[in-house]
Simulated scan of single mutants.
Amino acid sequence: MENTYDYKELVNFLIESVHSFSGKELIESNTIGNIPDYPYCAYTIISPYIPITSDIVTGEQFECVVSLTWHCLSGLEALMFAGKTNKYFKTFEVQRLLEQKKIVFVGASSSGQRDNFLSIEYERLAGCDLRFRVTDQYQDDVLEIENIEL
């Protein structure tokens, strides 16, 4: 049996894409480590597996949802980056790049505020959720019957 889908391929594409259109960093949400200077974007894979069919088969396609959230000092700046993100992933250029990686962009939720209260002040957040269709590398090791003698 081979491995299942490698989410690193999708995440690496997202990291490159966010940097390409914004010049800013995309990091994993709720992670330990250095936090970049504002503004920056964080991702969370909120739905890693949404089945399209009821069969689990070799090369199964399924969907996953990734939430991208911009962390900014200004609410308006966060909304601007969220809107830019939403539109960027709908462009023909991105569709073409995703197609080369055998990933399909299904759609995006509308952008919205996601502010976070930090002890004495707010961290201004806004983002959107992106839905992708990917292909699993799972392969069922089925015993083939070549001949039956009666």
Rank of each mutant, 00 (worst) to 15 (best):
M1N: 08
M1E: 12
N3P: 09
N3A: 11
T4D: 12
T4Y: 12
Y7W: 06
V11E: 01
F13T: 01
E16P: 05
S17H: 00
S20V: 01
F21G: 13
F21N: 09
S22W: 01
L26R: 04
I27V: 14
I27W: 02
T31I: 06
I32Y: 10
I35E: 09
P36H: 12
P36T: 10
P36R: 14
Y38E: 13
Y38I: 15
Y43P: 00
I45Y: 01
I46Q: 02
P51V: 07
D55A: 13
I56Q: 00
I56T: 08
V57I: 11
E63W: 04
C64Q: 04
T69Q: 03
H71K: 10
A78K: 06
A82L: 11
G83M: 06
G83P: 08
N86Y: 01
K87A: 15
F89S: 03
K90L: 02
K90E: 03
V94K: 01
R96Y: 05
L97E: 15
L98I: 03
E99Q: 06
E99D: 07
K102E: 12
K102F: 11
I103E: 00
F105P: 05
A108H: 00
G112N: 12
G112Q: 02
Q113Y: 12
Q113S: 14
R114L: 14
D115K: 02
D115A: 09
N116H: 13
F117M: 03
L118E: 07
L118P: 04
S119I: 15
I120A: 15
I120R: 15
Y122I: 10
E123K: 10
G127R: 05
L130K: 03
R133P: 04
V134R: 04
V134I: 02
D136M: 02
Q137H: 04
Y138F: 09
D140T: 06
D141W: 04
D141G: 08
V142K: 10
L143S: 07
I145W: 08
I145N: 07
I148D: 10
I148G: 05
